[in-house]
Each structure stands twice: as C-alpha cells, then as structure tokens.
Design a protein around this nucleic acid. Sequence first.
DNA 1: GCTTTGACTCTCG
DNA 2: TCGAGAGCCAAAG
Length: 100
Amino acid sequence: MVTKFQSKVYKLLSQIPKGKVTTYKLVADKLNSKAYRAVGSACNKNPYTPKIPCHRVVNSDGRVGGFAKGTGKKIEMLKKEGIIIVNGKVMRLERSLFRF
DNA sequence: GCTTTGACTCTCG
DNA sequence: TCGAGAGCCAAAG
C-alpha cells in the first residue's frame, strides 16, 4: 500500500537527477514535516524500485545511512554516479546536494 | 486503537 | 571530536 505521505516522498525523489543526492531532512522539510524517519521507511518500502532512486538519499551529516540491499551496495551505486564516498560518508556533500 | 519500531536529527557531556 | 540520550513523525503489528 502506498500512503499519501509516501507518494509525496517518491515524487520528490524522482526529481533527483543522476549524480546528485539529497538528505532525509530536506525531503521531510519539503513536505512541511519533521518525519525524517518516516521518509526513510517510505524509501525502504519503495514499491517503485527502478523508478525511485532511493539510493540518492543520505543523512544530513553526509553519512550514507542504510540501504535495504546493504549499505555497501548503496555506496557502489553512488560512486558510479560520480559521488565520492569515503568511510561511508559523502565527500563534498554541499556540492553534490540537490536542492528542490 | 494503542504500542512498537525505524534507511533520522539534534543536543549535551 | 565522539558517543550517548532524547525528540520527532508515520507506518506496521
């Protein structure tokens, strides 16, 4: 089931271009909410796997956070898109950060 | 319908 | 600088 909240999250995530990332905080803020955790949960469910780039969402401090298929996998994908990650953290986050 | 849980964030010691 | 604790919202049990 896809709730209204989740739909909003997915829509936002689908706007993220390749090579860019965003944070859970930004997404929640965009929805006028503080449900950072809910955003993460929504991504975890992610019914539109190929459609929604949930791997482009990281923590506010640049940490990769988690990933349903394993954090390592998430890092690999991001690196492939041009995002530099070291020690599980996104380098130059401000530069790679996508602002809605 | 209340309680638990989580891919989070912020503050304090 | 780093780790622990509290606070937050929404979804699932």
